[in-house]
């Protein structure tokens, strides 16, 4: 059982990575103000039971590889590690009474639409704003960075929801 989950997550890691660098990397709207980074859905949608330490390390690896493809060494790494750390806190705050089912992955079916949004949106916002703020590099561009972060959050959210409905759509056990 344990090994199966690891293999599946490793497969998902590669799928999210390649879709991001081969397809979504080229997707920008409104003169570059809106970019999409659905690869972070991999980190957000790790099983509830994943250990905090392993999420941090997986986040670091994901950010690092993405950075190499984007030639932005360190920027995605920093924001992914930040996302991985905040995910633990957000899980604490949003947990339903009785806590999350540790063997499950977060899906709309399992959590309900509202709870899913509450769980996902803060993580995307934090990641994107961190990303654009580090990328801007100077205080003068901060308002613009925050604006880009918020707008891009909406775009990423749409993709993440689309993935949910496409691949986790059936109430049954259908998974990719």
């Amino acid at each position: 059982m344990g090994r199966e989950i690891w293999l599946k997550q490793a497969g998902l890691f590669l799928i999210y990575l390649f879709i991001q660098v081969l397809f979504f990397r080229n997707l920008t709207f409104f003169e570059g103000n809106v970019m999409v980074f659905p690869y972070i859905a991999f980190l957000i949608l790790l099983p509830f039971g994943a250990m905090n330490m392993s999420i941090l390390i997986v986040g670091f690896c994901m950010g690092f590889v993405i950075d190499i493809f984007y030639d932005s060494i360190g920027i995605h790494t920093a924001s992914c590690v930040f996302l991985a750390f905040t995910r633990t806190q957000i899980m604490k705050w949003t947990a339903p009474t009785g806590g999350y089912e540790l063997s499950e992955v977060p899906t709309i079916n399992q959590m309900g639409f509202g709870a899913f949004l509450v769980f996902v949106i803060p993580q995307i916002v934090l990641h994107h704003i961190t990303l654009f703020m580090i990328e801007a590099g100077s205080m003068a561009f901060m308002p613009k960075a925050i604006l880009r972060g918020v707008l891009s959050t909406l775009a990423t959210l749409v993709i993440v929801l689309a993935i949910q409905y496409l691949f986790y759509g059936n109430v049954g056990r259908r998974r990719i």
């Binding site: 330490m53 986040g59 950075d67 060494i73 360190g74 920027i75 790494t77 920093a78 590690v81």
Partner: peptide, 19 residues
Amino acid sequence: VFLVFILLELVAAALIVNN
């Protein structure tokens, strides 16, 4: 977990600064 978080962020910061 918090200490590893700080450590990894420092590594990332070092990568950015020394790019």
